[in-house]
């Protein structure tokens, strides 16, 4: 079952001689539970593509459907709420809230939605990610790898339809990168979680179920 469909996405910046085609008529789809890596060099348009499918940016043309809902025509607040419930984000810089402890960072999306926290589920994912003993710590007391695990937990806490990871190992050393990649793979498998990860690292991309290549804003392979 397709959980995400991107059709004819276009995102251009500037005009005339300074026109930049960040995403140029790209289409692809992702099945539920699939771990997809979008690979491209710097400036290939992979981050822009991720922002489009995550609803952080609006395409000039095309549509994005997530879990049967077309997000292209949603109003900003509708989109934000949709994103809160259906999409989990993992950033290269973790982007944790420094004044909140680990537990509060993890449950932030649930709290923003005004829902009750599923403590059992949170316990399960923190155990899976090996941070169950760090719940009362603050982000500045954790290593980079630990912070990224917290970010992964946060992305999973609202049981989203898809998790979007933007260069999740970009700020980590190779050993920690491997650990984090392993964790992403595991959560995808254990929780049947759909994960779309963008990376420029081919080695990391190999852990994914499928690799989509993007070049100059166009998908050149793996789009199905």
């Amino acid at each position: 079952m397709e959980i995400l469909t991107a059709e004819g996405l276009v995102k251009y910046y500037g005009k005339g001689e300074s026109l930049v085609k960040a995403v140029d008529h790209s289409s692809f789809s992702v099945e539920k539970g699939e771990f997809v890596a979008i690979v491209g060099t710097s400036g290939s348009g992979k981050t822009t593509l991720l922002n489009l499918i995550g609803g952080l940016d609006a395409p000039d043309e095309g549509r994005v459907t997530i879990d049967g809902q077309d997000i292209s025509d949603m109003k900003p607040d509708e989109l934000t709420i949709f994103r809160r419930r259906k999409i989990g984000f993992i950033f290269q810089n973790y982007n944790l809230v420094t004044v909140l402890n680990v537990y509060k960072n993890i449950v932030m999306p649930v709290k923003l939605d005004g829902n009750q926290v599923d403590r059992e589920y949170i316990h399960r994912i923190t155990e899976m990610l090996g941070i169950e003993k760090k719940l009362k710590a603050y982000p500045n007391q954790l290593s980079g790898g630990q912070q990224q695990r917290v970010a992964i937990a946060r992305a999973l806490s609202a049981k989203p339809s898809i998790v979007l990871a933007d260069e999740p190992t970009g700020n980590l050393d190779s050993k920690t990168s491997q650990e984090v990649m392993g964790l992403l793979k595991m959560t995808s498998r254990e929780l049947s979680q759909t994960i779309i990860m963008i990376t420029h690292n081919e080695e990391n991309a190999q852990l994914a179920d499928r690799i989509i290549h993007i070049e100059d804003g166009r998908i050149v392979g793996g789009d199905r």
Binding site: L56, P76, T80, N95, L96, M108, L112, A158
Partner: peptide, 13 residues
């Protein structure tokens, strides 16, 4: 940046 991240994960204006 933190607020941007929070907005990305679902914090409304």
């Amino acid at each position: 940046i933190e607020y941007a991240a929070l907005q990305s994960i679902g914090m409304t204006g």
